[in-house]
Amino acid sequence: MSPVTILIDADACPVKDEIYRVADRYRAEVRVVSNAPFRIPDNPRIKRVVVSDGFDAADDWIAEAAEALPPKTCVVITADILLADRCLKAGAQVLKHNGEAFTAASIGGAIATRAIMADLRAGMDGVGGGPAPFSKADRSRFLQALDRVLVGLGDEGSIL
């Protein structure tokens, strides 16, 4: 049996501290993947992975790590839809920072919406809003979702 590993797309992740706390409770391994170093807790199960600042370097590292891990032992935290797609294909569970799960059933629609929004933004010459501000409710939903995923993986035989 393999421990669960949580891979964090960390450069814009607003829930790193929450992940550390939940991972510690479940004794999960954590990899904090970024283009720049972040402070991480002094915990042997939490490791910092600083990749080059090359385009998609962090995404490539995360997707390759997800493929290399045993089935049903990987959780990826990202808001990047294309990375989520790659990780789902590798067999990982994938959560957005607000707790929403990317699934095989939802990823196609997310990719299509991403393409439509890119086209709309291209025609607006930089005018328009961005995503809604991250809220306490988003943080709470994320914590509940991560807990659910880790419990589910434990039920499937991983050691937690």
Rank of each mutant, 00 (worst) to 15 (best):
A115W: 07
A122E: 12
A36G: 07
A65E: 11
P3E: 05
A105S: 00
K72T: 12
R25H: 14
G129R: 14
A145N: 05
R114V: 07
S52R: 05
G128S: 06
K72R: 14
Y20H: 04
R31H: 11
D119Q: 06
K72A: 06
V149K: 02
P41F: 12
L82T: 10
A28W: 15
A115L: 09
A84W: 14
L88T: 03
F55G: 05
V50N: 10
G123H: 15
F102V: 02
G109N: 00
E64G: 09
A66N: 08
A118S: 11
G154S: 10
G130D: 08
D59P: 02
A58P: 04
E64L: 09
G152C: 08
R114T: 04
A57F: 14
A101N: 00
C13S: 01
A105I: 03
L146S: 13
A92K: 00
D17L: 06
F55W: 15
S34A: 11
G130F: 14
G126R: 08
V50H: 12
A68I: 00
C87S: 06
M124S: 13
V76H: 07
L143H: 07
A84F: 13
E156A: 14
A28Y: 15
K96F: 07
S135F: 15
A115M: 06
K136W: 13
D11Y: 01
I77N: 04
R141A: 08
D80M: 05
L83E: 03
I19A: 05
A66P: 03
V75K: 05
S52K: 05
R48S: 15
L82S: 08
I107L: 01
H97M: 08
R25A: 13
L88V: 02
G154R: 11
A68V: 12
V94G: 01
D85F: 09
R27S: 07
P70V: 02
N43G: 03
G128D: 13
T5F: 00
P37A: 14
K136L: 12
L82N: 04
T5N: 00
V32T: 11
T73G: 01
